[in-house]
Amino acid sequence: MTTTASPSADQAALAAVDEARAALVSDVGSHDVGDYLGPIVEDELVVTHLFACTRAGYVGWHWSVTVAHVPGDDAPVTVDEVVLMPGAEAIVAPAWVPYRDRIEPGDLSPGDLLPVADDDPRLVPTYAFGDDPLDADAKAQVRQVAQDLGLGRIRTLSPEGFDLAAERWYAGSGGPSAPLAQAAPDQCHSCGFLVRLTGHLAAHFGVCANGDANDDGRVVSMDHGCGAHSEVRLAKKHEPKPLPEPVFDTLTVDEVESF
Rank of each mutant, 00 (worst) to 15 (best):
M1Q: 01
T4Q: 15
T4H: 15
T4A: 15
A5Y: 01
A5I: 05
A5T: 06
S6C: 09
P7K: 09
P7W: 04
A12K: 13
L14V: 04
V17F: 05
A20F: 11
A20W: 11
A23K: 04
L24Q: 00
V25L: 02
V25P: 06
D27W: 04
D27G: 01
D27Q: 10
G29S: 02
H31V: 12
H31M: 11
H31C: 09
D32T: 12
G34V: 14
D35V: 08
G38R: 11
V41R: 02
V41K: 07
E44C: 03
E44Y: 08
V46G: 05
V47N: 00
T48N: 01
L50M: 06
F51D: 05
C53A: 13
G57W: 06
G60H: 09
G60F: 08
W61C: 10
H62Y: 13
V65H: 07
V65L: 07
T66I: 06
V67L: 08
A68H: 11
H69Y: 10
V70K: 12
V70A: 14
D73E: 14
D74P: 09
P76S: 13
T78R: 15
V79H: 08
E81D: 14
V83R: 03
V83A: 08
L84P: 03
P86T: 03
G87L: 01
E89D: 15
A90Q: 01
A90K: 04
I91A: 12
I91D: 14
A93C: 00
P94F: 05
A95V: 15
V97S: 15
Y99L: 15
Y99T: 15
E104A: 09
G106H: 05
D107K: 09
G111Y: 03
G111I: 04
L113G: 10
P115T: 00
P115V: 07
D119Q: 10
D120A: 13
P121Q: 06
V124N: 01
T126I: 00
P133D: 05
P133Q: 07
D135H: 04
D135V: 00
A136M: 08
K139N: 15
A140P: 00
Q141Y: 11
V142T: 07
R143H: 03
Q144L: 14
A146K: 02
Q147C: 07
L149P: 11
G150P: 00
G150H: 08
R155W: 04
R155S: 05
L157F: 15
S158Q: 09
S158C: 08
P159I: 06
E160F: 13
E160P: 03
G161I: 04
F162D: 09
A165K: 06
R168C: 05
R168N: 08
W169V: 11
Y170L: 11
S173P: 00
G174H: 02
A178D: 02
A178F: 00
A178E: 02
P179V: 02
A181W: 04
A183L: 10
C188Y: 00
S190H: 07
R196S: 14
R196E: 15
L197K: 02
L197W: 03
T198Y: 09
H204C: 04
H204S: 14
V207S: 09
G211A: 12
D216V: 05
D223C: 09
D223F: 06
G227S: 08
A235P: 11
K236Q: 13
K237G: 08
H238G: 13
K241F: 06
L243S: 09
L243H: 02
E245A: 14
E245D: 14
P246L: 14
V247Y: 13
F248R: 10
T252W: 03
V253L: 12
E255V: 12
V256Y: 15
F259I: 11
